[in-house]
């Protein structure tokens, strides 16, 4: 790839956003960053990954955390910040990559090669998918989606100045409910290419 391309993918729970992001990375032959960031950090520090994962993509508990300058007792904050730094360092090195969630759209704001995408899907389709894949009842699937989306929104909105999932905050918001994975991945890659070439 000639120019640096960083595709940040925000996604609703159950929308298949993660699968699409993975397919984009495969098609472009670039790295996909998701939970593997914390896995790498844990490995580097001889730490237990499950200890780090507990605080990943979660909002800070405002009542039970305290901040002193750059130091925070909120482990959710700290895990977010080390991932932001990790991504910024990768971007500064000129690496092209796809990143899922992690409020990367905010963390990497200002990077020349950044394209921010938000993937959503209709509620019925997401519920149906969870019922089939995770063998949940309709009510359980709906509750899981609402809970997970709220957590993602709270986490994102803690760091970003704009709300999670609002159209004007992203370069592209895409409802992929009626698309298959290949179509969605190709569409996003074409869009990213157009954007970086200045056509859009």
């Amino acid at each position: 790839m000639e120019k640096q391309m960083i595709i940040s993918v925000g996604r609703e729970y159950g929308s298949r956003g993660h699968i699409v992001a993975k397919r984009i990375a495969e098609k472009l032959n670039i790295t996909l960053y998701d939970k593997n960031i914390l896995k790498e950090i844990a490995q580097k520090n001889h730490a237990d990954y499950s200890e780090l994962e507990k605080f990943d993509e979660k909002p800070r508990n405002k009542l039970f955390s305290r901040r002193i300058g750059e130091f925070s007792s909120s482990m959710e904050n700290e895990m977010a910040n080390i991932q932001f730094e990790y991504l910024r360092a990768k971007a500064a090195k000129g690496e092209s990559f796809v990143v899922v969630g992690r409020c990367a759209d905010m963390a990497l704001a200002g990077e020349k090669g950044l394209v921010t995408i938000f993937i959503c899907a209709d509620m019925e389709k997401r519920v149906a998918r969870l019922m089939e894949d995770d063998k949940l009842s309709e009510n359980e699937a709906k509750m899981t989606i609402l809970r997970k989306d709220k957590k993602r929104k709270d986490y994102h909105d803690e760091y970003a100045e704009y709300e999670w999932g609002t159209a004007d905050a992203y370069d592209l918001c895409l409802n992929i409910g009626d698309m298959d994975i290949e179509e969605a991945a190709d569409f996003i890659i074409s869009f990213a290419n157009f954007k970086l070439k200045g056509i859009l």
């Binding site: 950090i41 844990a42 580097k44 520090n45 730490a47 200890e51 780090l52 507990k54 605080f55 039970f64 955390s65 305290r66 901040r67 002193i68 750059e70 130091f71 925070s72 007792s73 482990m75 700290e78 895990m79 910040n81 080390i82």
Partner: peptide, 24 residues
């Protein structure tokens, strides 16, 4: 608790920044 004194906040934060989070 982790929020009771400034040293606790700094100590837990330094540990977390180095990949060793310390929850409540």
């Amino acid at each position: 608790t982790p929020i009771g004194a400034s040293a606790n906040v700094v100590g837990t934060s330094v540990a977390a920044k180095n990949g060793h989070p310390i929850g409540w």
